[in-house]
Nucleic acid binder design. Structure first.
Lengths: 66, 66
DNA sequence: ATATTGTGTAAAATATACTTTACATTATGT
DNA sequence: ACATAATGTAAAGTATATTTTACACAATAT
């Protein structure tokens, strides 16, 4: 699963810590997801997309390996 | 997290077992998610929405408790 | 009436997401 | 140069998703 969290954060100009706070997870969780270390739950993916004013599919992309 | 999997399945006229097969999980997993026993991973949510030709947000809805 | 298909459920096991604490490194501001 | 903010990482623990096996019941078809 790929994602553009970094880009979307840059557009909003918010840190990983601030995004984490807005979606109620730890900064490490945002960091891990952003770096593709693991993929989030649907709930978290929807919350993140919502912060960015985007659809889930605009922030996250399925890969062939998913 | 709420969902309209049952309705979308009815529109496509496919069983839980067939949906499960199409998204590569077990029938029990589809059943549990459909009944709201737990919410899926983002990967699974995206796969399910894709089968229905819908966006994730059109199939799943965040609740206040999420 | 009987076979078959679809659905609900449950317990135990495994995999994965997420937290907590803590430290190291990189970038940015003054 | 120094302070501070932002990011990367790691290990251990907890929570949750998913699988496997198995059974019960309801609906549908023959």
């Amino acid at each position: 699963m790929k994602n553009n969290i970094r880009v979307e954060r840059a557009i909003l100009n918010i840190s990983q810590a601030e995004l984490a706070e807005r979606v109620q997870v730890t900064r490490q969780t945002i960091n891990a997801i952003e770096l593709g270390k693991y993929s989030p739950s649907a709930v978290l993916a929807m919350k993140i997309a919502r912060v960015f004013g985007k659809k889930v599919e605009e922030v996250f992309e399925l890969e062939d390996t998913d």
